[in-house]
């Protein structure tokens, strides 16, 4: 495995730290006038999603992490594994367990394109698209014409996600949702 020195650190570089693969977010070279140089580095732990702040002596090295991101199509879930296929024409498939999904399974709509992060060829992170369009399968009956009162009610989507929607939304309608916040964005005309 290759090693990267602090002066090669840049955002997007994948390195190993404390046994976990990390993505470098920010690297700042700090050198007080005549003092010893160091680097302040922000890294995102790709397994936990946590952001770490570390200081390294300039010139220190970290081992590179064999981490690759692929665009994949979500095929189906068998309840234990979620199956994805590469979209590069290779038809290669990977199966991810629930840990790598880390809650994002509620946004996975069959045939949607997602980003799958592989570490040593195993999925460790599945990132759904920022916006998904999903049908409402359960909610209280809509109040016809009420598009202004501003109230909201829970609605269950076809993937099992429960979100808040305005009162006028009905079962069978398709809604657009921001997967980063879980917020309703609007109805989608079919």
């Amino acid at each position: 495995m290759a090693n990267y020195s602090t002066n090669e650190f840049k955002s997007g570089l994948k390195v190993m730290l404390e046994g976990d693969p990390c993505n470098i977010i920010e690297n700042e070279f700090v050198k007080p006038g005549k003092g010893q140089a160091f680097n302040r580095v922000k890294l995102k732990n790709l397994r936990s999603g946590r952001v770490w702040e570390r200081t390294f002596k300039s010139g220190e090295t970290l081992e590179s992490a064999d981490v690759m991101e692929f665009e994949m199509e979500f095929l189906y879930s068998d309840g234990t594994y979620w199956h994805f296929m590469k979209t590069d024409g290779s038809f290669e498939q990977v199966a991810s367990d629930k840990a790598a999904l880390d809650g994002s399974e509620i946004w996975l709509n069959e045939t949607d394109r997602v980003t799958v992060t592989l570490w040593n060829d195993n999925p460790i992170l599945v990132t759904p698209p920022n916006f998904v369009e999903l049908a409402v399968i359960e909610t209280d009956p809509g109040l016809k014409g009420d598009t202004a009162s501003g109230g909201s009610k829970p609605a269950t989507l076809k993937t099992g996600a429960v979100i808040k929607v305005p009162l006028f939304v009905n079962i069978g309608e398709v809604v657009r949702v921001d997967t980063r916040t879980g917020e309703y964005q609007g109805r989608v005309k079919q």
């Binding site: 007080p32 006038g33 010893q36 160091f38 302040r40 570390r54 200081t55 390294f56």
Partner: peptide, 24 residues
């Protein structure tokens, strides 16, 4: 406490590190 890389340091190096991180 500010995650200084662990090596032998002289007085000036500690001062520089603290100054550069928290004061400057």
């Amino acid at each position: 406490s500010l995650n200084m890389p662990n090596i032998n340091h002289s007085r000036s190096e500690y001062l520089d590190f603290l100054f550069a991180l928290k004061i400057q």
